[in-house]
Computed example of a mutant assay.
Amino acid sequence: MRKQHTETTEEVGVPLHQIRAVYDDTTIRVYQAYSEVIADSALAHGTFVSPPFKMERMTWIKPSFLWMMYRAGWGFKEPGQSRILAIDIAREGFEWALAHSCLSHAEPSMSKEEWERLKNESPVRIQWDPERDLLLQPLPHRAIQIGLCKEAVKRYVNQWVRRITDVTPLAHEIHALVEGDRFEEAKARLPTERPFAIDRSIPHF
């Protein structure tokens, strides 16, 4: 039986809604999981190309490595999410996405018409879901997911992408360490994600 693993006190005091990511002065890293065909195409072209990538669908980008691992089951959940990609995108693109976003659900005070109008005017959706620990159990604070559609998808694939890296081997390596109860080693292999400043003038931030 696996011994109980508890997170360190580093998670204590983390704000409920905070973007944490790998970033530098010009780029910020997000993660997506895809099939072999889409991943190979993206790596070969340095961005996503249609086909096989579907421009008409909403695509969700995630700055949190462990939330991506939760969603894709470390790359073992299903064939359509077997390859984990790290996509370094322009910071100005990421900031544009936040500035042109709305929440993925309506505010209680909104009418149906107001909500439909806001969705139609916003090419980006924001969703906050519980962050995950190494066992992919929920933590008290949230990780952001950013859904891109319409104009935002075009900007993403044609303007924002700077570099795509296949991190599936890293995901499998960390998963194997976790399965072997080697939590400190697994934690040392995680990408170092730092708080990313949000423009607080955006209403839902």
Rank of each mutant, 00 (worst) to 15 (best):
Trp115Ala: 02
Gln18Asp: 14
Ser50Pro: 13
Ser101Pro: 11
Leu16Arg: 15
Glu7Thr: 03
Ala106Pro: 03
Arg83Phe: 03
Gln32Val: 03
Glu56Ala: 15
Glu56Lys: 14
Glu56Trp: 15
Ser35Phe: 08
Pro52Ile: 07
Ala44His: 07
Ser35Ile: 09
Glu7Met: 04
Asp25Ser: 15
Arg71Ile: 01
Trp128Tyr: 04
Tyr34Ile: 07
Ile38Thr: 03
Thr59Pro: 15
Arg20Met: 12
Met110His: 09
Ile84Arg: 08
Thr26Arg: 14
Ala72Asn: 01
His17Pro: 03
Phe76Glu: 15
Arg71Cys: 06
Val12Ala: 12
Asn120Gln: 12
Met58Ser: 14
Gln127Ile: 02
Thr47Tyr: 00
Asp25Pro: 11
Ser41Pro: 14
Met55Ala: 15
Pro123Arg: 07
Lys77Thr: 13
Thr26Asn: 11
Ala86Glu: 15
Ile126Gly: 07
Phe48Gly: 00
Trp67Lys: 02
Pro123Trp: 03
Asp88Gln: 01
Met58Thr: 08
Leu66Asp: 10
Gly13Met: 07
Ala21Asp: 14
His5Val: 12
Phe53Val: 04
Leu66Ser: 11
Ser109Arg: 10
Met69Val: 00
Asn120Trp: 05
Arg117Asn: 10
Pro15Met: 06
Val49Asp: 01
Thr47Gln: 01
Trp74Tyr: 06
Pro51Gly: 02
Ala44Asp: 09
Arg125Met: 08
Phe48Thr: 00
Asp40Pro: 06
Glu36His: 10
Asp88Glu: 08
Trp128Lys: 01
Gly73Lys: 07
Phe48Trp: 13
Gln127Cys: 13
Ser109Asn: 09
Gly75Tyr: 09
Tyr34Ser: 07
Lys62Ile: 11
Phe76Gly: 12
Tyr23Ile: 01
Val14Gly: 10
Ala21Cys: 14
Trp115Gly: 04
Val22Trp: 06
Ser101Glu: 05
Ile87Tyr: 09
Ala21Gln: 10
Ala72Thr: 04
Ala86Asp: 13
Lys54Ile: 14
Ser50Leu: 06
